[in-house]
């Protein structure tokens, strides 16, 4: 069957589309369906009642607050630290290269092994600091790799031109590097949010319980506990809400980037 060339090209997306559909879209639709039911074994539609229940639940609100706090504090820190480390490592020659190689190390260590070490270091600390530290420590490598690659691919001529105009290193980086690498920086920020959600694994291992201290009680704890109580409806409703929130967040970022351009 002779297909037109561009049709063949269009068909190339098929495997990816099939996979995304099967394992991301369809499941999300299913979750949406489950979120408007009364129960897994009581298939009546109660529409938005589950959402109301979840939103008015004080522990969901606590979990939301904690998660937002985590994102609001950790992601900028993550970004800042990543920028600092990558930028400075480019100046530090051999040591810089060493630090870059080192930074990726924590990402590849299985959480189980490391949580024990962190438990030792943060034994008496009664705040969310240990979890923030674990997050930063483990995932900074990814940010560093992406940003180093981005920074090192800026054409050196631009810097030459700027230096001839008399710009110092600080101004150069603030006005050239950062704007030029806006896209990778935005991507790193999004990655930061993704990893924020992944810290549930480490947090769970760290506290070893389904009900951690109040300051560490994030959305996934809420969702996991609902799951264990067989209350899938609350879990589905909160999942849908998170996804919509994230969609808004991404839209905001892309919008701002488009505006800046």
């Amino acid at each position: 069957m002779k297909l037109k060339f561009f049709t063949k090209l269009k068909l190339c997306i098929l495997p990816a589309a099939a996979g995304l559909l099967l394992f991301y879209f369809l499941p999300f639709l299913k979750v949406l369906y489950y979120s408007v039911l009364k129960g897994q074994y009581q298939k009546e539609f109660v529409w938005l009642r589950n959402y109301k229940n979840v939103l008015t639940n004080q522990y969901f609100q606590l979990a939301c607050f904690n998660t937002l706090k985590l994102i609001a504090i950790c992601v900028p820190l993550f970004l800042l630290l990543a920028i600092l480390i990558s930028l400075l490592s480019l100046y530090a020659g051999r040591m810089g290269r060493f630090v870059r190689k080192l930074s990726i190390l924590p990402l590849f260590l299985p959480s189980v092994s490391v949580v024990a070490a962190f438990l030792l270091v943060f034994e008496k600390v009664e705040s969310e600091l240990p979890i923030y530290s674990i997050f930063l420590w483990k995932y900074i490598g990814m940010g560093v790799v992406i940003l180093v690659a981005a920074f090192s691919s800026v054409e050196p001529e631009i810097y030459e031109a700027a230096r001839m105009d008399g710009a110092g290193p600080l101004t150069m980086h603030a006005y050239i590097t950062l704007p030029v690498c806006a896209k990778p920086i935005q991507f790193t920020m999004i990655l930061g949010v993704v990893y924020c959600f992944r810290t549930f694994r480490e947090s769970y291992l760290y506290y070893g319980a389904n009900y951690p201290p109040d300051y560490s009680y994030t959305l996934q704890y809420y969702m996991n506990n609902q799951f264990l109580k067989l209350n899938y409806q609350s879990m589905a409703a909160s999942s849908v809400m998170i996804t919509l929130l994230l969609a808004g967040f991404v839209a905001l970022c892309s919008g701002r980037k488009n505006g800046a351009e």
Binding site: G39, Q40, Y41, Q42, L228, K229, L230, N231
Partner: peptide, 11 residues
């Protein structure tokens, strides 16, 4: 405790 979960979910 899971017994009550099973019962309340009518599973």
């Amino acid at each position: 405790a899971e017994a009550t979960a099973l019962r309340d979910a009518m599973a």
